[in-house]
Design a protein around this nucleic acid. Structure first.
Length: 269
DNA sequence: CTGCAGGTC
DNA sequence: GACCTGCAG
């Protein structure tokens, strides 16, 4: 074997090493963005996860969800919004992507194209701005529900901003949100993604001493009414959705908090 | 912040 | 389909 041949072989080996390493890095990146959804991540406050009526709970890095295949969207999305998560950084919006960890197949964003409905985030991108990965992860279609644009950019957006206000004020809140997937609903796209007639959002906070809860139930239409007018008991949302929201709480605490629609512990202004 | 539409490659 | 820019509530 002459010297030229040896150099050629070494060069080829180096090329394989470099490309192999790059492929490895890409694999790692993919796992970060769309993990296998098998483990509860350290950042997920499992204690507050609701039950699933569909048997398909998925854990991502930045949020967990229960996917309802019949309606092609999550029945709930849950995550903790810590005070330290609040950030003013501005990431460019990525493209919506099918959530491959949904074994029954998550909806394609094409269902929403020209439907007249927004691809409405359940876990808002604005709540996951502490990292590019967490932000982009909210653009999985398992985190999306059809929403009227006026509603999404209006009263729903106001509520999401209020949640950020409370996360800052009360040093973090745990959030569960979704559409009410019951009754007669319109649907959009070839996969017939259901359009909920109501959306709910439930908050729990145990960071400031006494555990407190608040639940909102909003008709799927824009409104200029103040947000407190949409407050309901957690029990009411449970009856509507068939979901048990905080099963791990001690029963006496759970029963008392979930029956109440008193929002005096939550400061609105 | 919340999003969509249109044009290019 | 991916990517960019512009526009709207």
């Amino acid at each position: 074997m002459n010297r030229k041949t040896i150099f050629s072989l070494i060069a080829i080996l180096i090329l394989f090493a470099v490309f192999g390493y790059e492929y490895f890095l890409e694999e790692e990146t993919r796992k970060e963005i769309v993990n296998e959804g098998e483990k509860v991540k350290g950042d997920t406050n499992e204690y507050f996860l609701p039950t699933s009526s569909t048997g398909q709970i998925i854990h991502h890095e930045g949020y967990s969800l229960s996917y309802n295949e019949a309606h092609e969207q999550a029945e709930w999305v849950a995550y903790e919004l810590k005070k330290s998560h609040l950030s003013s950084t501005n990431f460019k919006r990525p493209y919506f992507e099918i959530d491959k960890t949904v074994k029954t197949g998550a909806a394609h964003w094409r269902n929403y194209k020209d439907s007249g409905y927004d691809r409405g985030h359940l876990c808002p991108a604005g709540d996951r701005k502490f990292s590019k990965e967490a932000h982009d992860e909210t653009f999985l279609t398992s985190n999306i529900s059809p929403q009227k644009h006026d509603f999404n950019s209006g009263v729903w957006n106001r509520l999401e901003q209020k949640v950020r206000y409370w996360a800052n004020k009360y040093d973090g809140v745990f959030v569960v949100t979704g559409g009410v997937l019951k009754g007669q609903m319109k649907s959009i796209g070839d996969e017939e993604v259901s359009v909920p007639n109501q959306f709910y959002k439930i908050l729990i906070d145990n960071n400031t001493g006494v555990t407190k809860m608040i639940a909102f139930l909003l008709p799927h239409e824009n409104s200029n009414e103040p947000l407190y007018k949409f407050v309901v008991s957690v029990d009411k949302v449970e009856k509507l959705t068939g979901i048990d929201f905080f099963p791990e709480l001690e029963d006496s605490v759970e029963n008392q908090l979930e029956a109440s629609n008193n929002y005096k512990k939550w400061q609105f202004y």
